[in-house]
């Protein structure tokens, strides 16, 4: 049941004048979970649907385990798919939904398999329920079990959590990761939620306008974003004026390393809120404008001359950072990206 490698090669797809896929290349290693992340309309769902065979590509190839499946219809591609919502067959019970794919393959006398899959997603007690008798989270678990029951070569998840509420979303994404690791199926996970992508994937592919901007492990995408779009889309960033000289950029009086080299001159640097430290200092050049409590951490907005800087601080610090307090800002020396400027 170990996975197979998937290769998307030069995929192009246009809807009218909009390029949903613009020469997209993507390689997924056997057993790997890749999350495609991007704003709506960036082509991530089109990429998944082309891989599934539910959408035609204008050009390019889809290889699964080295075999060209571009001309194969969806029902012969051997892929398990989980949709955003409402994909369970309403006239079948949970167990019947899970065994549906097996029955299509003529394996109707394999009751153990479907039950085992329900057990895997923790719903063995709900086999006789109909979809309308289950919560959204339970329905998505059944959908996952149904997709995995046929032992697909590739598992495709199309925004599977976006219709659920926050708490269930976090719970279920961890479960998806656990199950995927357990069965080892090569998986493509499409989402617009950066936190979800970072939490669940081996590698995250950030897409924009039908192309991959960056494909890297979550930590790399977060800490060393390839360019301003990724830095902006993945996590919140301050846009601060800076001056490049040599391999460093000076921002608010601190010299920070650059992710990618740049020509000397005035630039806009993208600095993460958690890389900004705030200390009360009567002689400091900054003033606290607003502060908001977010739980274990808090967010503080500081005005330094004309520039607004958002900083993430430990909530314990909050009492000393009331609006109006004079503060000093220090930037941690982590590599930063530059806004290419437009």
């Amino acid at each position: 049941m170990s996975g197979v490698a998937v290769h998307l090669e030069g995929l192009r797809r246009a809807f009218g004048s909009v390029h949903a896929l613009d020469d997209l290349d993507l390689e997924i290693a056997a057993g790997e979970l890749i999350a495609l992340l991007g704003p709506s309309g960036c082509g991530k769902t089109t990429a998944l649907r082309v891989l599934a065979g539910l959408e035609d590509a204008d050009s390019g190839r889809v290889l699964v385990g080295g075999k060209d499946v571009t001309a194969l219809p969806a029902n012969r591609r051997d892929m398990g798919m989980v949709f955003q919502a409402y994909s369970l067959f309403p006239h079948l019970t949970a167990l019947e939904n899970v065994s549906f794919g097996l029955r299509l393959r003529g394996r109707r006398r394999d009751p153990g398999r479907a039950a085992a899959m329900l057990d895997l997603v923790g719903l063995s007690a709900h086999g006789r329920r109909y979809p309308h008798q289950m919560s959204g989270g339970q329905q998505q678990r059944v959908a996952l079990a149904r997709a995995l029951a046929i032992e697909p070569a590739v598992l495709l998840l199309d925004e599977p959590l976006s219709a659920l509420d926050a708490k269930v979303r976090v719970q279920l994404r961890e479960e998806i990761r656990r199950i995927q690791t357990e069965v080892g199926t090569t998986t493509l996970f499409v989402t617009h939620d950066q936190e979800e992508a970072l939490a669940v994937a081996d590698r995250v592919g950030v897409m924009r306008a039908g192309r991959l901007e960056q494909l890297a492990p979550p930590a790399v995408v977060y800490q060393q974003p390839a360019g301003a779009f990724v830095a902006d889309f993945v996590g919140l960033s301050n846009r601060l004026p800076g001056v490049v000289s040599g391999p460093v950029v000076a921002v608010l009086g601190t010299e920070l390393p650059l992710i990618t080299p740049a020509a000397a001159g005035r630039v806009t640097a993208l600095v993460r809120p958690e890389a900004v430290d705030v200390t009360p200092d009567p002689d400091g050049s900054g003033r606290v404008l607003t502060s908001s409590f977010l739980g274990s951490t808090s967010r503080v907005t500081v005005a330094v001359a004309e520039t607004l800087v958002v900083a993430q601080v430990a909530s314990g610090q909050l009492p000393s950072l009331t609006p109006g307090t004079a503060v000093r800002l220090t930037l941690q020396p982590v590599p930063v990206a530059l806004d290419p400027g437009n």
């Binding site: 959408e55 035609d56 204008d58 571009t70 001309a71 194969l72």
Partner: peptide, 8 residues
């Protein structure tokens, strides 16, 4: 391209 979807 041999479009399965287009044919449908």
């Amino acid at each position: 391209m041999a479009g399965v979807i287009a044919r449908r």
